[in-house]
Amino acid sequence: MNITEILFWLLTAVALGGALLVVTSKNPVYSVLALIATFFALSGHYILLNAQFLAVVNLIVYAGAIMVLFLFVIMLMNLNTETEPQKNKWLKLAGTIAGGCFLLVLVAALRDADSKSTMALVGSGDTGLIQNLGKALFNEYVIPFEISSVLFLSAMVGAVVLGKK
């Protein structure tokens, strides 16, 4: 067992434990914090795969920005167990069906992916490095990249328009 393996199992345990806590904890603030811990563990996995850029961007964007907004909203709404409304049983049923559908989609999508045949490049892969990633983004995938940036721009304009009303 070398350091990489030890770290892998540790990070896996943190990621799974955190993900479970997100779902099970009663207090939404705890859920958010557990989700942040999960993001950290995932970033650790990225680092193990030598995708340092992805790891850090995952932290900056998800853990640093989006989860802060989540926390903002949750803190301002002050969700407690007392204020939580009683859930409709139809809603529960709909949730179960939606979850089942998602599971089916996942199974269908992952069925063809031959996870056994492709080995993860631990510590030596270089696709996740910022130079390669940048070159790939601005050469092969430049059109989807620009289109997604236009999408973000439209979202920003929409937010400004809503804010000006």
Binding site: V56, V57, L59, I60, A63, G64, A65, V68
Partner: peptide
């Protein structure tokens, strides 16, 4: 970028 990630954690 690492420094930025840590900074954003500071919040």
């Amino acid at each position: 970028l690492y420094i930025f990630a840590v900074l954003s954690m500071g919040v």
